[in-house]
């Protein structure tokens, strides 16, 4: 484990289905089986109606809500990518359903809020996990 290995996820009961899905190259999030509300981060039961939840695929498309430019390596990993962009993406499935993720090829100088993005599942260096990153649509 070198200095440039990012922290690895530690799946728990709530998040394990998310990591099982990304291992298959799919993006799935937690959703209420009753009222159909999406939950991120995942919950065992729905915050709105109390029904049990299950993981379901999402399209992975959305709009860029906000972003930061990491110029100082506050966490290990991705040193060779500095500076890099981490964004918050509003997914199309539900208003306010957001996922954070790197935008590996985004240019911080020309990046605009509200840009259309699409999730892509990529390997996380240093282990067997896969994570979603976002790419600007059409790039």
């Amino acid at each position: 484990m070198g200095a440039s290995t990012p922290p690895q996820p530690r799946p728990d009961l709530d998040s394990e289905p998310f990591w099982q899905a990304t291992a298959k190259g799919q993006l799935e999030l937690c959703r209420c089986t009753g009222c159909r509300l999406w939950h991120q981060p995942p919950l065992e039961r729905c915050r709105q109606c109390g029904e049990v939840t299950a993981f379901e695929p999402v399209s992975g498309t959305g709009t860029l809500h906000s972003f930061i430019v990491v110029r100082h390596p506050a966490v290990p990993g991705f040193l060779e990518d500095l500076p890099y962009v981490v964004g918050l993406v509003d997914l199309d499935e539900q208003v306010g359903l957001r996922l954070p993720g790197r935008l590996p090829n985004a240019d911080p100088e020309s990046l605009k809020l509200g840009s259309r993005v699409r999730a892509e599942i990529v390997p996380l260096p240093g282990g067997d996990f896969h994570v979603p990153v976002f790419r600007i649509e059409g790039s």
Partner: peptide, 11 residues
């Protein structure tokens, strides 16, 4: 001094 300070996580 403030503006010369390096970026951490922009902004």
């Amino acid at each position: 001094d403030y503006l010369d300070g390096r970026w951490i996580n922009e902004p």
